[in-house]
C-alpha cells in the first residue's frame, strides 16, 4: 500500500483539468547507496485514471519518470461532482488508488 496521492480535478467549460501528484520513490535500479550496493528498482509501471466507469487515461510508465511525479491531463465527458479515480501499480506489484471529486 503506497502513500496517498494528491488529486485535483477542475472543470473548465467541457474539459476537466486533472493534476495528480504522486508520492513514490521511482527508483531506477541504477543508483547505488552509500555502501556501493545497487538500490533495487521500484517504479510505477501503470497509471489508470477513470471517471464514471470509463477509463480516461491509461499510461505505461518506466524508470525515466521522476521521483514524486506530477501528472497532468485533460479529458471531456464529466460533470462537476463526478469522481475521478486514479490507480497506479508499481514494479513491486504495490498499488494505490485515490479519488477526487471534480470541482
Amino acid at each position: 500500500m503506497g502513500n496517498p496521492m494528491r488529486i485535483r480535478a477542475k472543470l473548465d467549460g467541457e474539459v476537466v483539468d486533472a493534476k495528480v501528484l504522486m508520492n513514490h520513490a521511482m527508483e531506477t535500479g541504477q543508483r547505488k547507496d552509500a555502501s556501493g550496493a545497487l538500490v533495487p528498482a521500484h517504479y510505477i509501471t501503470k497509471v489508470i485514471a477513470s471517471c464514471n466507469g470509463k477509463t480516461v487515461l491509461e499510461a505505461d510508465w518506466g524508470p525515466s519518470v521522476s521521483k514524486n511525479p506530477l501528472l497532468g491531463f485533460r479529458f471531456r465527458g464529466a460533470a462537476a461532482g463526478d469522481t475521478l479515480s486514479v490507480t497506479w501499480t508499481d514494479s513491486m506489484n504495490d498499488t494505490r488508488t485515490d479519488e477526487a471529486v471534480i470541482g
Binding site: K19, S64, V65, S66, K67, L70, L71, G72, F73, R74
Partner: peptide, 14 residues
C-alpha cells in the same frame, strides 16, 4: 533532464 517527464506532459496547457 531526468526529473521532469511527467511534469512536461502537463506543461503544454500552461
Amino acid at each position: 533532464a531526468g526529473l521532469a517527464f511527467a511534469a512536461l506532459t502537463a506543461a503544454s496547457s500552461i
